[in-house]
């Protein structure tokens, strides 16, 4: 379980997050939504120790992440940010192998090779595994990065806007795969999304942020009401049903 306790972040005089507390449930797909500038990326940056908080604490299984060795934490929690342009000449397989670094520090053992192969198969990348990363399309590259996170083999996986620059077909495929990580492999996954209908259709639990505060946390069913969505996004919504899931129409 990830517990966020009274966490705040401010740069000089601007507050990004104000004394925020929340709990991310175990073995569920949790989605963080909210308008631009709500503090979503800052929040997951702090949960994954990339951004140090101004005050407050983050506990994983009851232990503060700021008091653990970075390498130990890398075996429990993985994060994929959205800024992933690299200059290295890397093939998909080599990128995925990086996921094993916290376990074997670059010297791959037979177990590592098994995990790498599993991750590649799971993300359906066998046919691409010898291709260079920068020759892939946006969706394929996203899958390769997620495979790397999978090879890292952590209980907690955090993904910052994984659907960015992915077309709707591949976005749907990707969300189905992320869903399976929770259902089949028992991972705890946290995703930042912009599309509320993807959030509503695929997640177990949703946290909505607005201007640095939590304005909603609960099930998709409870979120998808006109007045709640309007309160978050400041635009009118109509709620419709699709396959027993509520979707919001705002066009």
């Amino acid at each position: 379980m990830i517990e966020v306790k009274n966490i705040s972040k401010s740069y000089q005089t601007t507050n990004i997050l104000n004394n925020l507390s929340l709990i991310i449930p175990q073995q569920r797909l949790t989605t963080i939504i909210g308008p631009n500038g709500a503090g979503k990326s800052t929040l997951i940056g702090m949960i994954s120790r990339i951004i140090p908080p101004t005050s407050g604490d983050v506990l994983i299984n009851g232990v503060s992440i700021f008091k653990q060795k970075s390498n130990e934490l890398a075996k429990k929690l993985s994060i994929l940010k959205q800024d992933n342009h690299i200059l290295l000449k890397l093939t998909v397989e080599e990128l995925v192998s990086f996921g094993r670094y916290p376990h074997s520090f670059g010297k791959l053992t037979p177990i590592d090779h098994v995990k790498i192969k599993e991750a590649i198969t799971y993300m359906d990348l066998e046919s691409l595994q010898h291709q260079l990363i920068h020759t892939l399309s946006g969706g394929e590259r996203q899958r390769a990065y997620i495979a790397m996170i999978l090879a890292q083999d952590t209980d907690y996986i955090i993904l910052d806007e994984p659907l960015n620059s992915v077309d709707i077909k591949h976005a749907k495929e990707l969300m189905t795969r992320i869903r399976r990580l929770v259902d089949e492999l028992g991972k705890t996954v946290v995703v930042v999304l912009h599309d509320i209908n993807f959030a509503s259709s695929y997640s177990d639990y949703i946290i909505a942020l607005k201007r640095g505060d939590v304005v909603f946390s609960g099930t998709p069913d409870d979120l998808m009401h006109q007045h709640i969505l309007t309160q978050i996004y400041d635009i009118p919504f109509t709620i419709a049903k699709n396959n027993n899931k509520k979707i919001g129409i705002y066009y």
Binding site: G45, S48, R49, I50, K69, S70, N71, E72, L73, A74, K75, S78, I79, L80, K81, D83, N84, H85, I86, L87, L88, F98, G99, Y101, P102, I149, Q152
Partner: peptide, 11 residues
């Protein structure tokens, strides 16, 4: 060389 956030992620 993978970048700051990726390096931190890898411990």
């Amino acid at each position: 060389a993978l970048g700051k956030s990726q390096a931190i992620n890898l411990g």
